[in-house]
Each structure stands twice: as structure tokens, then as C-alpha cells.
Design a protein around this nucleic acid. Structure first.
Lengths: 236, 236
DNA sequence: CTCGCGAATATGTCTATACATATTGAACCG
DNA sequence: CGGTTCAATATGTATAGACATATTCGCGAG
């Protein structure tokens, strides 16, 4: 009935343990010999599962040392929607994050989006400004689900911008991005030091871990000053 | 010296034949038994190479029938920069493409971008308007390299929009996209029936086949009317 | 204490073999 | 002639064994 090949069952079980966060980045995956014993199969079968996980970038394998859960790469390989701080410092400009507002509250029951994100818990609601070389670079509005990330209640987002903080604390996520263009409204224009109506690139990103919503962020970039770049091509 | 594992060499050679276009979509890849003979190795080794190609989506395998070069999927798996026509008809709106200008000419020698694209040949230069439900949806300026796609000289882009035509004639490409936001200039605003200065989403995409530039396109979408969506997540 | 060397070990590659399974094409029968 | 059955075939999965190679650990020499 099942007809799921063993090597794929092994692969799926390990993948589940990683994606759920049960095995955090850096955690040592059992040796092939241990998995052979656990599943009662030959090494080639285990090896096929582990090689597939390595190809998919979920684990890193090192001879003699063993296999380890990979840490999520900052750039999702494909679309450079990055850690803004890393991007700016890579250009050689100074970076600063100004936290404009931070609060903890329950989800607005009239906002289906917020209630879905919050689940059973509260939300952390943040607004901040990314500053590059002394000039406003992007305005960010973020919601974080405390049900998914309880540690966020105690984090100091003035010291470490929320994007970077999340990357370091919440391993491995699925993400969906929506990209559009909007004209700057008065309040936004003032914060970004632009004229009202200037074209802005609007990026809205939601991420999940193991199917559970983690965060939603809206970022506004001065359109002419910033390009998103996406590349597809021969991998490897 | 080489130290390239045999299964990977097999994989790379076949991948090269596919990406270069030598083996077009639908072409039958040699049977495992044939590849065993050609490379003088065991079936498991060939199988590893072929399974990897199948996982990567480059080939499709069918028992008893053999393995075949896959046809490129319209959506590049990751970033939905789509065939605009498919997108609009999927929404249930009528679609039309209005060809505003078409010419064949040599690359402007002062434009490094154009000369690189053109290579040794001429360019096809197109401007057209995508229309959804009777209203302007996107403005498209496109260059096609005749060196890479000589058939483009005879194509009727009024009958079939260039994006769709290229997808059907030029298999498997690498691509790079740049996304930004701009304000509508007067000429563009008129074509799209918008006010001057309205925020537009600007998508510039370049594609290559086997390292050779094929086309460059700039598309302008009314920002508020259109979202680009990118998804990353558990594959499969 | 440090450096270098060798042994232990986990993964990487490959072979030869076996049986399972989906699909096709052809033979066969109503 | 249409439909069913059946055997041939190519891939899918799995095994047990072998040797290669990178890396680490510990030991011993300086």
C-alpha cells in the first residue's frame, strides 16, 4: 500500500526532524552505521538518503567527522532578498538600524492575516528604519509570532535588527515574497526623506517553520536606488 | 588530477548536451545499458547519474520506455515571472498582445549591452503592449539575438507574443532578473493609461542558452495592479 | 609543549547481482 | 476487428563487499 521506498522514508524522516527544528543547525546526524542498524538496511540505502539530503543542502557531510545539519544560507540561493545589513556592509557603507516602535500585543481579531500569524499567542510588532551611509535605505514593518518564536519577547531589536536576529534564531524556513511598486505616502516619504509619490519597491515576505507562521515583514525601498536580483541557472 | 567521479562526469556530459540544445526536449536519452557500454561501468553508476538528472528536472524517466529530455517548465519553479499570457488567461481575463513596433537592425556599437547580446548577428527589436480585459497591463521592450535564435527573423510576433514564442522555440535557459520601481514617464504613462509619475514595477530579464545571450526584455507593470510572487520552501 | 606521523574512522565511489514494478507491443481469443 | 493477456524490457530499489580518501585523534620525538 505505502510503496514508499526505504531510502526515501529515511530521507523524509530526517528532513522532518530538521525542518521542525528538533535537530537544530550544527546538530550531528547519526552515522551511516547507526542508521543502518536503526533501519535494518544496507549502507548503500542509507547513503542514498544522506546524499540526497546533502544535495538538497539540508546537511553537510564531512569525512571522519560525520554529517551535520546545515545552517541556512543567508541568501536563499535564488532570490537575493537578503539580510539588509549584510548587503550594505558588503558594499562598504556604514549600516545602522533605528528602531522606531516596538510593542507586544494580541492580534487584531478583525485582521485575518494577523490572527493566522499569531496562532495562540501574542505578536511582537516592530517598525524600524535601515540606514545606509547615514541616509534612509528602507522602512520595515514587521510582525513576529510569539507562539512560534517565544524568545522574541526578550530580544533587543535595537541592538540587532529583527531580520538578522531571526536568521540566527529560527533555522530553516519556507518563505513567500510578494513584490510590487507603490507611490510613497506622506508619512513614509518623510521617514525616507523622499518626495511624496516617489516610486517605492514594496517587498512583503512571510516565512514559516514546519508549516507554522513565523513572521511577516513589509519593506519599502526607494525604487531607483535599489534592485532586487534573481538568478536562475546551472546550479553548482 | 581530474578526481571527478565517474557518475558526475556522466551527469555533466548529458547535462551539457541538454543545456546546449543538442538534445532537444523530448529527445530520448540513451538507455542505462547503452551508457554502461559507452562508459564501461556498472549500471548502478549510470543509474546514480540519471537519477540525479531526473531529480534536477532535466530528464523524465519512464519504465520500459526510457529516459527523455524534459520540456522546460513555464514557471522556473521558484520565481513566478511568468508567461504573461498564461497568467492572465488563468485569471479568467481576456488577453491580447499589441505589437507597437518591430524592426531588425544591427546592435548600436555604442551600447555595450546591445553588442554583447547581438554577438555576430543582428537584433530583433520589439515593443509591445500586453492587454488584459481590454486594459493595458504591461509594456514590453525586447531585444532578441538573431545569432542565438535565427528563427526569430521569420516569426510573427503579432500572432504570438515574443515571450511565449521564445519559450516554445528556445529550450532551457539561464536567466537573470532585476526588479526595481520607477515612476511613469509621459510616453509610458500614456500607453498604460496612467498618470505621469505613477509607481511602476520594472522587471528586466536577460536569458542565456549554454552561455550565449538570447534575449533581454524590460517590462513595466502598473505597480499597484500587479504582484510578483516568489516562493521558497520544501520542494517536491 | 609543539610538531609531525601514523592509525582509526566516516564518508565517497564503484561493482556485480538480484528481484520488483510499470509499461509496451504483440500474440491470442472471442 | 476489438479487447484481453502475456512476456519482454527499462527503470526502481536494495544488498554485500571492496577500495579510496579526507579528517581527526593520539602518540611519540624533538
Amino acid at each position: 500500500m505505502t510503496a514508499v521506498p526505504l531510502h526515501q522514508r529515511i530521507r523524509d524522516e530526517i528532513e522532518g526532524l530538521i525542518r521542525s527544528g528538533a535537530w537544530a543547525p550544527g546538530h550531528r546526524v547519526p552515522f551511516e552505521s547507526e542508521l543502518m542498524a536503526r533501519y535494518g538496511c544496507s549502507r548503500m540505502t542509507v547513503n542514498k538518503a544522506m546524499s540526497a539530503l546533502a544535495d538538497a543542502g539540508l546537511i553537510v557531510r564531512r569525512r571522519r567527522a560525520g554529517s551535520f545539519v546545515a545552517r541556512p544560507r543567508v541568501h536563499s540561493t535564488v532570490l537575493d532578498i537578503p539580510d539588509i545589513q549584510a548587503e550594505i556592509t558588503a558594499r562598504g557603507e556604514t549600516y545602522a538600524f533605528v528602531l522606531l516602535a516596538a510593542e507586544r500585543r494580541a492580534a487584531d481579531p478583525d485582521d485575518g492575516d494577523e490572527t493566522e500569524l499569531a496562532g495562540e499567542g501574542d505578536l511582537v510588532v516592530l517598525r524600524g528604519l535601515h540606514v545606509a551611509g547615514g541616509r534612509p535605505f528602507a522602512l520595515e514593518d514587521r510582525l513576529i509570532s510569539l507562539a512560534a518564536v517565544p524568545e522574541a519577547a526578550a530580544a533587543d531589536f535595537a541592538a540587532e535588527p529583527p531580520g538578522a536576529w531571526l536568521l540566527n534564531h529560527v533555522p530553516w524556513t519556507e518563505a513567500e515574497s510578494r513584490i510590487s511598486a507603490v507611490g510613497a505616502e506622506a508619512a513614509v516619504a518623510e521617514l525616507l526623506a523622499l518626495d511624496v509619490g516617489t516610486a517605492l519597491l514594496a517587498v512583503e515576505r512571510r516565512t514559516w517553520r514546519a508549516g507554522e507562521p513565523v513572521t511577516r515583514v513589509r519593506q519599502l525601498f526607494p525604487g531607483e536606488a535599489y534592485d532586487l536580483v534573481a538568478r536562475f541557472g546551472p546550479a553548482r
